[in-house]
Design a protein around this nucleic acid. Structure first.
Lengths: 385, 385
DNA sequence: CACTCTTGGAGAAACGTATCTCCGAAGGCT
DNA sequence: AGCCTTCGGAGATACGTTTCTCCAAGAGTG
């Protein structure tokens, strides 16, 4: 009795009427077929407007909400994008680039929602079963390490992956990064112009793209201009170590008269260290650090910062990813996905396409000896967010 | 021909072998039934260990990954939790409580992942279709306004909702909030003990729970101790307005000799305003503000802050939500969900259960006239994260 | 020997949607 | 009158799991 099947569906009409209304209920109430309901609600098929609006009205009246799970199963699209963040220890999110990540994630969320997708935050180190349990249309990966097993796995599954940070040896669909070399060279030039004779660097011990490229650019510049490199490294994820390293740098016998700090807290750390050694900024020491925080506008003195423009990065990364997701199936109407599964898309095409985004140097008092003006920004590049 | 059905499945075995392996493929390769594969992989059913491990091995070899969409459709569980953030304008996330939100979201993400769930960030104002397209097991809502249509909709759909912030008139499953009244009274007492004679308040114009309860507590305290209220309000989402309001407060003829600022930027704004009027902190003006940022440890002077303990809130909120999600079906083994659908769970039981979390006052130089020590923290409550 | 119980596992029915295929009817054309 | 086209819509299948039901064979038991 409970399994009595009526003509248009197998669900018994007698009990269980407290459950959510399904598409079958709408069809029955409107006196049409399931097909018609689906077409009417999704704007497909050939239906007169009258039928369309009637079905919609019935659906509204019944409080019908299509099942996202069923739709995902059927269409193969979940509308979900993963956002992978690197982790240190137990906590997700990076510490050193916290403001960067927050801004980037915010922009990414906005961009995704604007195109009908939602973001789900997934630490790279999280349990495998969590990853496997979620239907993802694509994934944004922040600075994947070489041979990242997670990225390989995703790629093998045919999930498009776009990385923030040029990947070393990862099969990503596309990537976006800043032009770190140009950024560092720009800062070094800026400091030189302000009168720096020996420029030091505060950098990290990790091997991520940002740290590596920036340090390499510094070293190459040193070779070019004939300056002996003066730098200290520390594990960037340890905030306490940064202060120690800043102190070390200024305690050296070959103390630099200008310093660029690669990480957000370096500015205050260097400022504190300078005070400890009785160095005036900018008179005795020129200071620049990479940061997205606007607290450096109000320090004493205000500190020149390099912004990596995380908002632009986040927006671009997400848009590239969604392009990749939707580009597979859209197009000629032929089912391209079946002919060319995602995993083969960039198989023999050489390296994945990358985009370099410009950075912005926000010049403040800490890196200027002459100018009485404390806050001078270079003209903004066009197309600003 | 293409629809030729073999015994154990309808998929033609001849072509399309580039697709991902399904459970049927594993079953065929292992020489067992679909049921056995499912049971072996999920640790259910009664199977000898030998069969179990053999099936697992075959699945591994084929690179089998169960379809999250199919599993969600079948089980009704997606492992996804929504995190709703209030929005101002186009950008998601709040501005005034930025550090608070970031910390809270981070803790919530951790807690969710620890229990096998992932968080998806969904601005409350986002397009309805995005919400409808995602299978959510439950939702965390930050400070829902009265009669929030979103919350009502979720509740009607039977999706458990737990709110951060005591809800005004929303049918939530549970809520978590700080004891804002106690926090404000604690600060006012602290300032009084430090010698304050007239305490001012910098507060917001919005009607969210935090602003409302805090302001009411202040006003009630004024009545109790017989002080005329001295406060200024401004739209908290506008960072520029905060500086203006801080200035207004200190420009009043009945200028306070101590101020509590409800929002994160108030500390620096008030400090700047005090400088402008030649007021020394803490000698002429005692200062406290609510903030999760540690920049106030390094301002000149360091500023006493109230922490709302967002990490604890985020963890608690998520755990309550997951308890609600899993509590429905677990238990006696009877299918409680069918007997008591979620929407009826708290129907006549009075208000939803709420939890009040303690805050922490981090005392620094800005609110102490006598003590030479600049950073003194009260003993931490037990059970700290 | 007849019986029950346990073990190991197969079959098939959902879950709720999208979409492919097909069909009748009405209208226009030669 | 026969044929083609378009309109409006119904039927059925597939998406890939989980799980309920049931069965066969062997093991113990009286």
């Amino acid at each position: 009795m409970t399994a009595a099947a009526n003509q248009s569906g197998r669900r018994p009409t007698t009990s269980r009427r407290l459950e959510r209304a399904g598409i079958r209920d709408v069809a029955a109430a409107a006196g049409v077929s399931i097909t018609t309901v689906s077409d009417a609600l999704n704007g497909k098929g050939r239906l007169p407007d009258e039928t369309r609006s009637r079905v919609r009205e019935v659906a509204e009246r019944l409080g019908y909400r299509p099942s996202a799970a069923a739709r995902t199963l059927r269409t193969g699209r979940s509308g979900l994008i993963g956002l992978t963040v690197t982790t240190y220890g137990e906590e997700p999110f990076t510490f050193t680039e916290f403001a960067y990540f927050a801004e980037m994630a915010r922009a990414a969320t906005s961009a995704a929602l604007g195109r009908g997708y939602a973001l789900v935050v997934l630490p790279a180190s999280s349990r495998h079963d969590v990853w496997g349990n979620i239907a993802l249309d694509g994934t944004v990966v922040i600075d994947p390490p070489d041979q990242d097993p997670l990225v390989s796995e995703l790629y093998r599954s045919g999930v498009p992956v776009v990385s923030d940070g040029k990947p070393g040896n990862c099969p990503v669909t596309a990537w976006v990064d800043n032009d770190h070399e140009a950024a560092v060279l720009g800062i070094l030039d800026h400091l030189s112009e302000a009168g720096a004779r020996r420029i030091g660097l505060l950098t990290g011990t990790s091997t991520d793209t940002y740290t590596r490229l920036s340090t390499e650019a510094y070293l190459a510049w040193c070779v070019k201009v004939g300056q002996e490199p003066v730098y200290e490294t520390y594990p960037a994820h340890d905030p306490a170590a940064g202060a120690v390293a800043a102190d070390r740098l200024l305690a050296r016998p070959d103390r630099p008269d200008a310093v660029y700090g690669l990480f957000d807290p370096n500015g205050t750390d260097l400022l504190a260290a300078a005070r400890r050694y009785g160095l005036r900024v900018p008179d005795d020491l020129l200071l620049v650090c990479c940061s997205e925080s606007d607290v450096y506008a109000t320090t004493e003195p205000p500190i020149t910062t390099l912004s990596l423009k995380p908002r632009k990065i986040g927006t671009t990364v997400v848009n590239l990813l969604i392009d990749a997701i939707e580009g597979v199936d859209s197009g000629t109407g032929v089912d391209i996905a079946r002919l060319f599964p995602p995993r083969y898309r960039t198989a023999g095409n050489g390296p994945p396409p990358g985009t370099l985004m410009p950075t912005e140097l926000i010049v403040r008092a800490s890196s200027q000896r002459r100018s009485p003006r404390t806050t001078v920004s270079p003209p903004r590049p066009p197309g600003e967010v």
